[in-house]
Amino acid sequence: MNLLTIIIIGVLALLGISYWSTQTEKKTNEFQADLKLSASEFEQHFGELKINGGTLRFWGNWFGKPMDNYHEIKSVEFDNGKNILILTLNEEENLKIWNPSNLEIGKKELRIKNADKILFEWHLYGEDKIGENLKFESYINNGINIKFTTDYMAEKRNDKCYKSEPALSIIGF
């Protein structure tokens, strides 16, 4: 292959990635809720609900690359006194959501529109589930913006969060 061919292939690949990315963004914005629940109702009726798993997104910030991982809710607990919703996921990950509101379930997505704070904890994938492999991402809504912190590859992580986006989305395939 000559240099011109390589450049053309590279440009086409970038255009394809850009197109796929905008299509993924459009899909997340075309959400239609089939069911709206409080956190307490979600806990009470979780066993009766059909909820698809999917990729995690916090205030518009993807956990990993869009649609490259899969998380499924295995159990739900709601601490009414502290107003904390705790979701345990399929790989023993924990999602703690403080003051969640406007929980909506659609065909391929679960959304929590508002929250004060989200803490996502997981063990490094493929490693032993021991304390030294426990990692976290924290998102705090201070009313003006979302403050993001993590103890895993912080320098490489996207910290762009948007208050206009749902606090949590689990977007199915």
Rank of each mutant, 00 (worst) to 15 (best):
Y70D: 02
I118E: 08
K129D: 13
N2G: 12
G126A: 03
I73E: 00
A167M: 04
T5I: 11
Y125C: 06
R111M: 06
W98E: 02
S101E: 04
S40C: 00
L87K: 09
L15F: 15
N61S: 12
A115M: 12
K82M: 13
G10F: 09
G10Q: 09
I144M: 07
Y139V: 07
N102V: 08
S164F: 13
K163C: 01
N83F: 02
S38T: 14
F120I: 09
H71L: 07
Y19G: 05
G64V: 06
Q44E: 06
N114Q: 07
C161M: 08
L87Y: 12
A39T: 00
R57Q: 14
G64K: 09
D79H: 03
K107Q: 12
F78D: 02
L134C: 00
N80M: 00
P100M: 03
L168D: 07
I170R: 01
G143S: 12
S138I: 02
F58M: 13
F46R: 05
A167S: 09
I73S: 00
M153E: 15
P100K: 03
I97H: 04
N145R: 01
A39G: 01
K135M: 14
G106R: 05
A13T: 14
E104A: 09
A154V: 07
I112V: 12
K108R: 10
G53L: 10
L4N: 08
F58D: 08
K156T: 10
K113C: 06
K96I: 05
K74I: 02
S18M: 13
G47T: 12
N141L: 11
Y70T: 01
F136S: 09
L49W: 11
D151N: 13
W20C: 12
P166D: 02
F120H: 15
K113N: 13
E132W: 00
N80C: 00
W122Y: 15
A154K: 11
N133Y: 03
I17L: 14
A33T: 06
I112Y: 00
L4W: 07
S21Q: 13
L110E: 11
L35N: 01
I105G: 04
Y152Q: 10
K135T: 03
K27R: 13
L89E: 05
N80A: 03
E77A: 02
G131R: 02
